[in-house]
């Protein structure tokens, strides 16, 4: 199946060839998870990925992906206050 992934903030340095917000298209086996996708795109670096959206919804690494999913990844980021 085909999914797209975009990298934000400091994760962009892993793919400096991509413009800001440019999606990367990935071919994955059926029933691949979000963690599988991250492994395929970033290699063994999953610790750095903190926030994962699939089609705008927050998901965890075990989430099974579907054809056409739009994935966006962030390192730990925050704002406002606490």
């Amino acid at each position: 199946m085909e999914v797209t992934v975009r990298l934000f903030a400091s994760l962009r340095r892993h793919r400096p060839d991509l413009a800001l917000g440019q999606p990367l298209t990935c071919q994955l086996p059926e029933r691949a998870t979000l963690a599988d996708l991250i492994q395929a795109v970033l290699g063994p670096l999953p610790d750095e990925v903190a926030i994962m959206l699939v089609n705008g919804q927050l998901q965890a690494g075990e989430q099974v992906l579907s054809e056409g999913d739009r994935v966006s990844l962030w390192p730990p980021v925050a704002g406002g206050a606490l």
Binding site: F8, G21, V77, A78
Partner: peptide
């Protein structure tokens, strides 16, 4: 990390995407 590198505006794409 992110506060030094991007300030709070690293949230723009995240909050927008969600």
């Amino acid at each position: 990390g992110s506060f030094r590198a991007y300030g709070t505006a690293s949230l723009v794409n995240l909050i927008n995407e969600m």
